[in-house]
Write a protein that binds this DNA or RNA. Structure first.
Lengths: 160, 160
DNA sequence: GTTTCTGCAAAGGTTTTGCAACAAA
DNA sequence: TTTGTTGCAAAACCTTTGCAGAAAC
């Protein structure tokens, strides 16, 4: 895992007079093990594979902590739950494309998007802050062939 | 109110074998009375000023109906509830800028944004669908003067 | 008359919180 | 020791749903 993660967390804990606990360590371990987005429930499952005693309440409290020190960002993937994105440390300006057919989420960075963002924001009389562009789209694959392997995969996973 | 609203609703009702009721009429009246965004609770309040007997369940069911015929769109304003935007009939491609200081929401249309959207989507191998760009920003006003009249207004309203 | 719609109340799902025991500093 | 943290269970919150009566067609 990227050493900047623990460093930034540690700095935040010290600055706020908070404590390092084994639960927080384990949750961070689970959250940043892959670059996948996750919701609270998924993080609870991942975390319990490392330590079965972690409670759901601690998951929610730690998620808030990680958002506070900007290690995680809440992202709206157009579903009903809050999802968290662990990749802003590496790609601070990235955006999301979401497929309406198969729910795939593709991250992308784009210089023009960033420029345009700034430009629009200033024109409206604001100061640019976090950038967040979300594109909704449809699979080429599904439109062409009537099938999308991701959708099929996802549905297979739901069965299991 | 724009006559296209009732026309589109009527067409949808007929096409789907649904019925026109006085509740639906009143809710539409309230929803499109201004161009403000609203959540379910706010719509219930607005509606009850016209007819105190409308139930919360009917609000939710009618919101779904209006989304189905594309008179309303759900928008994510970065808060915990679902908000609805009644302005897509007039500005089908508009986007939102949200102020992190005062929660103001500014709508904007931008040709370059639309083009860039299409371009990025195709490059990633998808087909453009709904466009939705959300910019988060901070008030010039607050940064310059330490005060923002909208924030003050909002807080005054909370008190009352 | 038939079918849809409404209001009510209860249930659903996610997230937050009060509290007593526990653990870090 | 002091203060922050945890797990549990209950609560809070928004939204959906089953049902019997009412309304639209």
């Amino acid at each position: 895992m990227d050493s900047r993660i623990k460093e930034r967390l540690e700095a935040h804990l010290v600055a706020q007079g908070l404590r390092r606990t084994k639960q927080r360590d384990v949750i961070v371990e689970a959250a940043f093990a892959t670059d996948d987005h996750f919701n609270a429930d998924e993080l609870l499952e991942k975390t319990r594979k490392l330590d079965r005693t972690i409670s759901r309440a601690t998951i929610y409290r730690t998620l808030q902590l990680l958002v506070d020190c900007d290690l995680l960002r809440e992202v709206d993937l157009g579903r009903d739950q809050t999802f968290y994105d662990p990749n802003f440390l590496d790609k601070p300006q990235h955006n999301h494309l979401i497929c309406l057919d198969c729910d795939r989420v593709v991250e992308f960075e784009d210089e023009n998007a960033a420029l345009l963002h700034d430009c629009i924001t200033r024109r409206l009389g604001f100061q640019p802050q976090m950038k967040s562009m979300r594109i909704q789209a449809k699979c080429d694959e599904l439109s062409r062939t009537g099938q999308c392997k991701w959708k099929a995969q996802r549905e297979a996973a739901m069965q299991a």
